[in-house]
């Protein structure tokens, strides 16, 4: 398009982004400040950057264990989501029948259910399965709750792959499932990556279920651990901001290395659905 008044565009973008990113800038900067500086000055940049807060978080809190828990939960959720969403997404695009139509409607409706309505009954399910205070409870709940959007994403992805490809395989005598495994799956890397990243981010960020399903501090996820910083240690802002910065690392990595997939994931889940 026409390059016009581009300096104004830059100014507007930078001003807007500066406002929008203020919380994150202040988070990193506060995490690098000494306590004296934190209480003394209002500068946005640390004068004597120090890693003391990070050392404190690693040595004196349960946070490292909680990060490991979050990694375990998020990776498991990612794996199951990719597997289940790919299967279901393929089934919903390639097969015709009343059940598949109902299933699509069901995926819509499921997103209209308030999470709190399911919270207590789900808690009872988890407890009767013996999964209370166990990370497995979070793994299955996160997967199921995020699955409708993941299936929706895979469905819109498979719609972009021409049906002729699997149909030619069927003509050659290949079963539909083998056609999916041999031909379609190898072409799905980018769709599966999007789904995986969206599922990972959801699991990494979730708070409500983790706060109810897990009781033991060393068993919980980083979201719950972070929320306890203000209660447990009478608000140690420096340590809290160090822990927050650590919790933001995956998001930052995804934005740097996989922005395209995040964007595709969001638009496929929302727009084409």
């Amino acid at each position: 398009m026409v390059r016009q008044q581009s300096w104004l565009t830059y100014v507007l973008i930078i001003v807007l982004l500066a406002i929008v990113l203020l919380p994150l800038i202040s988070m990193v900067s506060t995490s690098l400040k000494t306590d004296a500086e934190l209480y003394g000055s209002n500068s946005l940049l640390p004068q004597n950057p120090t890693l003391d807060n990070y050392r404190y978080v690693f040595k004196n809190t349960d946070f490292p264990q909680q990060v490991i828990n979050s990694i375990l939960v998020s990776l498991t959720v990612t794996l199951i989501s990719v597997f289940a969403a790919s299967f279901a997404g393929y089934a919903l695009t390639r097969f015709r029948g009343r059940i598949f139509g109902i299933y699509k409607g069901f995926l819509y409706l499921i997103q209209m259910i308030p999470a709190v309505l399911m919270l207590m009954p789900l808690f009872m399910v988890i407890r009767s399965l013996g999964l209370y205070d166990n990370l497995v409870s979070l793994m299955i709940s996160y997967t199921a709750i995020n699955l409708p959007i993941c299936i929706w994403m895979m469905k819109s992805f498979y719609e972009t792959i021409p049906y002729e490809i699997d149909e030619s395989a069927l003509v050659d005598g290949c079963g539909p499932f083998m056609a999916y495994v041999r031909l379609i799956l190898p072409m799905s890397a980018s769709g599966l990556t999007s789904v995986g990243i969206i599922a990972f981010i959801y699991a990494w960020n979730e708070y409500m279920l983790a706060s109810v399903f897990i009781r033991t501090n060393t068993l919980t996820t980083l979201s719950v651990g972070l929320s306890q910083f203000s209660q447990q240690f009478s608000v140690e802002w420096g340590a809290m901001m160090a822990a927050s910065s650590i919790a933001t690392i995956p998001a930052a990595l995804f934005l740097v290395f996989a922005q395209k997939y995040i964007v595709e994931g969001i638009t496929a889940g929302a727009v084409k659905g």
Binding site: F87, Y90, A91, P121, L122, V125, I145, L147, P176
Partner: peptide, 26 residues
């Protein structure tokens, strides 16, 4: 062909029934 499609919906359906449908009805 459709039967294969139903099979492929099974993993998602089990999760939905356990985590979404039952708690919703309950």
């Amino acid at each position: 062909r459709n039967i294969v499609g139903y099979y492929m919906l099974i993993p998602a359906t089990i999760l939905f029934l356990l985590i979404n449908a039952f708690p919703l009805v309950y």
